[in-house]
Design a binder for these strands. Structure first.
Length: 325
DNA sequence: ATTTATGTTTACAG
DNA sequence: CCTGTAAACATAAA
């Protein structure tokens, strides 16, 4: 699920909460999501302090004290949910809407889990009977999707949940991290992402179709299906256009729009729907600002024409026939 | 009951 | 090189 803005949101909150924490033990419930031999993983991770939390593309990186790096990819449905106590972070206590009660705070986030009325076999809890989004996340941790759990020295926990089990956690040394870093493109929220640079990158791919191109991780890192669609709408460009047919002005609009939308999405703590909760249980608010994504059949907020969809590769692209040329 | 779709990425076939 | 498709998996909606 999460694209750059959602991963950035999770990263910021985790940085605040667990940087400085020491991992006492790790519980691995589903070994295939840990891309390292179990013994090696435990050996190198348990007892380590987390020096910092970072993001690259759609990945979260923990810098460990011993020089190794923990790398998470949430793919479609992964979540990193932190459950701790107010004493863990004074600032977290001050800003969490959930202080008091059982004295726990929650942070992290990820894909919404629509529990519907399914029963959690592990706990026997009927998820449909639960009320708020908070209940759904808090009550049942670890739940049947908690495939890896980091238990900190101070008694708090970080749950790596993943309904569809596509996500992973890796353990890399410095050289491997550097190598991986090179496989990804430019970070669109960094200073070096100028229009000149954007144009340079795209011009190398003259024959490509613009919307899927925006999602290519080795060109621009972190842009996924939602924000690529939104950038095309904002620029008034049909997602099926080829780079070679785009004017200078259209390229410039795409650049300005992409940066603007990503920044807005980070400020709004990402896109969310249903019972999704982002860090601290606050809902991401970006969904209000989406113009085409998930709006098939609805009227364009700008021109009133009905939003249509097309398939590009295996991904759905929504667009406005009135606003996009 | 069956089919389809899902915010990701990779592998593979042509 | 490019393109498109399936596949990893679970769930909800159609």
């Amino acid at each position: 699920m999460p694209e750059l803005p959602e991963v950035e949101t999770i990263k910021r909150d985790l940085q605040e909460l667990i940087a400085g924490n020491t991992i006492k033990t790790v519980t691995i419930n589903l070994a295939k999501q840990v891309k390292a031999p179990r013994a090696k993983f435990l050996e190198l991770v348990q007892g380590q302090k987390i020096k910092a939390v970072r993001r690259r593309a759609k990945m979260i990186i923990f810098d460990l004290q011993n020089g190794w790096y923990l790398l998470f990819h949430l793919k479609m449905t992964g979540q990193l949910i932190y459950r701790g106590y107010p004493s863990v972070s004074r600032q977290a206590r001050a800003t969490s809407p959930w202080q008091g009660e059982d004295k726990m705070i929650l942070a992290g986030g990820g894909h919404p889990i629509k529990y519907g009325n399914a029963k959690d076999k592990k706990s026997g809890v009927n998820m449909g009977s639960l009320g708020s989004a908070r209940d759904k996340l808090l009550i049942n941790l670890p739940n049947k999707y908690s495939h890896v759990v980091f238990n900190f020295q101070d008694g708090s926990h970080l749950f790596f949940n993943d309904l569809r089990q596509f996500g992973w956690v890796k353990l890399l040394d410095g050289r491997e991290l550097e190598k991986l870093d090179k496989e990804f493109g430019i970070e669109p929220l960094e200073k070096e992402f100028t229009f000149k640079k954007f144009k340079e990158l795209l011009v190398k791919k003259q024959n490509k179709v613009i919307k899927p191109l925006l999602m290519e991780q080795d060109v621009i890192a972190g842009v996924g299906n939602i924000y690529a669609q939104e950038a095309c709408f904002c620029a008034g460009v049909m997602p099926s256009r080829r780079v070679k047919d785009l004017s200078e002005q259209e390229l410039n609009k795409l650049y300005v729009c992409l940066v603007k939308i990503l920044k807005l999405a980070v400020a709004k703590k990402g896109t969310s729907s249903d019972n999704y909760v982002d860090a601290f249980g606050r809902q991401g608010n970006m969904v209000k600002y989406l113009k085409v994504y998930d709006r098939k059949g609805e009227k364009c907020r700008r021109c009133g024409v009905e939003i249509k969809v097309m398939k590009q590769g295996s991904r759905t692209t929504a667009y406005c026939p009135g606003c996009q040329r």
